[in-house]
């Protein structure tokens, strides 16, 4: 049997002015075909104005087990949010 085509992750910009968002993945022999396939698989109903494809093997991901050390520290830093501060009514909009 011939070898399987590599897997690509597909990112679509839904509208002008928005970020590309991950929508799924697909198999394709090369980047050009990956974009053509992504057009057919993920944008059959005007879902996008631009496509990125990246080989899945090239994506580096944080490990699920690192979730605590990576993201927990932010929990204790409530002062990073504007709602932490009281703004007196007299001051008006700030």
């Amino acid at each position: 049997m011939s070898s399987e085509w590599p897997l690509w992750e597909v990112f679509i910009r839904g509208q002008h002015g928005l970020n590309h968002r991950h929508v799924g993945s697909l198999h394709a022999p090369d980047a050009e075909m990956a974009i053509l396939n992504a057009r057919d698989v993920y944008t059959r109903r005007n879902e996008g104005v631009s496509i990125w494809v990246v080989r899945s093997a090239d994506i580096v991901a944080s490990a699920p087990s690192d979730k605590g050390p990576l993201f927990d520290p932010a929990n204790a830093k409530v002062y990073r949010h504007p709602t932490f501060f009281d703004v007196p009514d007299e001051v008006g909009h700030m």
Binding site: S2, S3, W5, P29, D30, M33
Partner: peptide, 14 residues
Amino acid sequence: AWFRDGLTAHAEKQ
């Protein structure tokens, strides 16, 4: 199969 193989060969050549 021949078509999938052809596309793979083309990708490798490129």
